[in-house]
Design a binder for these strands. Structure first.
Lengths: 154, 154
DNA sequence: CACTATCCCCCACATCTCCCCACAATGTAC
DNA sequence: GTACATTGTGGGGAGATGTGGGGGATAGTG
């Protein structure tokens, strides 16, 4: 499974449709059948999973105990802001309005390939988190995450 | 079996009827034949199971020890407020009045896809539990589910 | 038996979604 | 440069969906 990478800016029309970047489509597995699941991200952006990768997430969810309060709370709040999407014949996604509100996306959306998933940002929110992250602290983060011998990982 | 997901708000008419969300219907297995079981939830909401998934719940219940007081109490109180429902020709559910009372649903019902079942909430009750869930704990929950590299799974 | 309440079917209709067509912009081959 | 394919953007319209109300069949009550 190759990683999604790169950043692509597209306009959103007044029906909430946005073209899916052609270069990202080349990374989507044919198994996914141009079907996706989109949901609220932890940051003020949206997460987009091709179907085959989303199924791995569901597999994890299905292992959570449904007869505990905490388990039910996890499942409810995770799934309630998720929706299935497909590409139309022009390779566009129709963003649900509640997710556009959440992410403050209106006329422009920025796709960011982020490994196993794709993130979709509004320009404003993206600029804001960029400004909060100085180059120095990015260096620090990088070292914290990548530090040590990568090959020893797990 | 795909998970139920998403949140949908519908109005309840003065006959207690409410449209079953079309997107959720796409997730219901044809095996279920548009037949459901509805019952009191453990939270102040209603649980709605398509027939095929309800049968899995019954299977679980049947494994509970019937000769212990606790076991009998659980079974009795779980099942006593359960009813069978079907969709009418306009894909609506007729909510039993005792369940509308319990869940405090009157003119508006919110459907939440929660994995193997569907929850039905009144706006007021839902807002209350939302307020009790801080963003931090949502982050924690999220990381429990999504944490780790998905590709390493299994 | 009459009366009433409830259920469920049908019809009507406003709204929304999605599919299709058109075309502009961009990239590529010759 | 020109022709052609791919990609990005916009809009119109058919069909699906959500909502309300009327009315007939059925069952429960006095």
């Amino acid at each position: 499974m190759p990683s999604f990478k790169g950043q692509y800016e597209h306009s959103v029309d007044n029906k909430g449709r946005v073209a899916f970047p052609a270069k990202l489509r080349k990374t989507v597995s044919p198994d996914a059948q141009d079907r996706f699941t989109i949901l609220r991200g932890l940051e003020p952006c949206l997460y987009l999973y091709p179907q085959d990768r989303w199924e791995l997430v569901e597999k994890k969810l299905s292992k959570i105990n449904n007869f505990s309060l905490k388990g039910r709370t996890v499942i409810r709040n995770f799934l309630r802001f998720a929706e299935d999407l497909s590409l139309d014949k022009q390779n566009r996604l129709s963003l649900p309005s509640h997710l556009m509100d959440f992410s403050e996306i209106d006329s422009t959306a920025i796709f960011i390939g982020a490994g196993e998933r794709i993130e979709i940002w509004s320009p404003g929110k993206l600029e804001k988190v960029d400004n909060e992250l100085s180059f120095e602290s990015y260096q620090d983060l990088f070292e914290q995450v990548m530090g040590g011998n990568i090959e020893e990982e797990e």
